[in-house]
Simulated assay, not measured.
Amino acid sequence: MFTDAHFDSFKNDGCVVIPGFLSAEEVAALRKRTAELLDSFDPESQPKTTFSTGIRDKHIGDRYFLDSSDKVSYFLEEQAVVDGRLAVDKTRAINKIGHGLHIREPLFAKLSHSNKVRQVAQRLGYDDPRILQSMVICKQPSIGGEVPLHQDSCFLYTRPLSACGFWFALEDCTLANGCLEFIPGSHLETPISKRFFVPIEPEFSLFPPTKDNNKTPIPEQKPVGAECKPIEVKAGSVVLIHGQVLHRSSHNHSDKSRWIYTFHIIEGGYEYDDRNWLQMPADRELTKL
C-alpha cells in the first residue's frame, strides 16, 4: 500500500496521505470502540483535566497527564468545563483518550502492530521502531480546540531525530471540522530548536531515509511565512507526518466531530531524551512495533 510515489511525497513534502489504508470494517470497529470508551467515561471519578497544545507549562506537574503513557486516560476540551463542571454531555466533552491505547486496547493494539504498519515503518528505514503516544482525538463539534503550528520531534526528541506520526482518519476530515494542515517541505528547512518549550542548539536530520545524521548539514533557519496546505481526507485514510514538518489544525466550528486515531514511532536504537514529557514506567520499555 506504500508505493514509491508515497515515499517520494513523504520525503519531499513531509506529509503523505495513503487513502483506504483501513477497510470500512476496521473503521467501523474502531469507531464503535471509541464510542464505548466515551460512554464509559465517569467525570465524577476522574480528574477534569483539560488539554491544550502550545501553552507553555500547561501540563507540567499534572500527574494525571504525565502518568498517561501506558494508560487509557481522558482529557477534556477546554470549553467543555465551566466552573469545574461539564458544560456539555460527557461524550461530547472529551478532547482525546490516550496515551497507551496501543497497550491497553486490543483493537487499537491490533492496528498499531499490523503488518501494513510494519511494512510502512520498514520502508521508511526504521530498524527497531517503537510505538508511543497513542490516542484518539475527537475534535468535538463547535468546541474542538485549535492545535497551533508545531513539530512533533520537539516533544518526542531522540538523538538523532526519528519521530514519525501515523494519523488515521476515523471520520471524514475537512477544513470545516479541523483537518490537518502543514507547510510542505518545512521539514527540510526548519531545524528542531527547542525541546518541549526549552530552547536548544538547532538540530536537523533527514531521517528518513538518511541515517548518517552527523553529516547532514543544518539549513539556515528561515522565518515561517509559508501558507499551510490543508489535508482533507476520507475515513480510512492514514496520514504520515515527519517529526520535523510544521503542522497544525484549526478549531472545529462545525456541527460534525473529527475522530482520528494516532500514534508515533521512533527508532528504538536511538537515545530517547529523559526530558520528553512522555516517559514509560520504570518496569516497562517503549513498545516494540
Rank of each mutant, 00 (worst) to 15 (best):
H264P: 01
K222P: 07
T91L: 03
E36T: 02
K288I: 02
Y272R: 05
G61V: 11
Y261N: 05
I131R: 00
E105L: 06
A29V: 12
Y74F: 14
H242W: 12
V224K: 04
L170H: 00
P202N: 11
R92I: 13
T210P: 03
E105V: 02
P209V: 15
F168V: 13
L206H: 07
I18D: 12
P191D: 08
L30S: 00
G14F: 11
P209C: 15
Q79F: 05
S45E: 10
L86C: 10
G14P: 03
F75H: 04
F166T: 15
A35E: 13
I103D: 00
S153I: 14
L22Q: 01
A235I: 11
K234H: 12
R118M: 11
P43F: 06
D152L: 06
A282E: 09
F75A: 08
E220Q: 06
R248V: 02
R85N: 14
A87I: 04
F2L: 08
R284D: 10
E232P: 03
H187C: 01
K234R: 10
L161Y: 07
R31V: 04
G144H: 11
H102N: 04
K211P: 05
F75K: 07
Q122M: 10
A24T: 14
I94F: 01
I137R: 00
E171V: 07
T190I: 09
S237I: 09
S205Q: 03
I18C: 09
S142R: 11
Q279D: 11
P191I: 11
F168H: 13
G178C: 07
H247E: 09
F204S: 06
S40W: 04
G236P: 01
N214P: 01
E267N: 09
E285W: 01
A109M: 13
S73D: 12
K90C: 15
V72I: 08
R56N: 14
H6S: 06
C179V: 15
W259N: 14
S142N: 11
P141T: 09
Q140A: 06
I131T: 05
G98E: 06
T50P: 06
H102S: 03
H113A: 05
G178W: 10
F41P: 03
P47G: 05
F207W: 09
H187Y: 03
P208K: 08
K288V: 04
E171L: 09
E171R: 00
F197W: 00
P230G: 04
S193Y: 11
K32M: 13
Y126G: 08
S257G: 12
V82H: 06
D8R: 03
V224F: 08
V88C: 04
D8F: 05
A235N: 07
W259I: 13
S186R: 11
H150Y: 10
L175T: 12
A226D: 15
S68N: 05
F21M: 13
L22I: 02
E232A: 02
I55F: 09
P43N: 03
G84L: 12
G100I: 14
H253V: 13
V147Y: 08
Q133T: 12
A235E: 14
P191M: 05
F155V: 10
G165F: 12
G100S: 07
V136A: 10
F10A: 07
S73N: 12
F196T: 08
A235L: 12
L240W: 14
G100H: 05
F2C: 07
T158A: 11
A121R: 00
V245N: 06
T3L: 08
D4M: 15
Q46W: 08
I103W: 02
H253R: 06
V17M: 15
V224L: 10
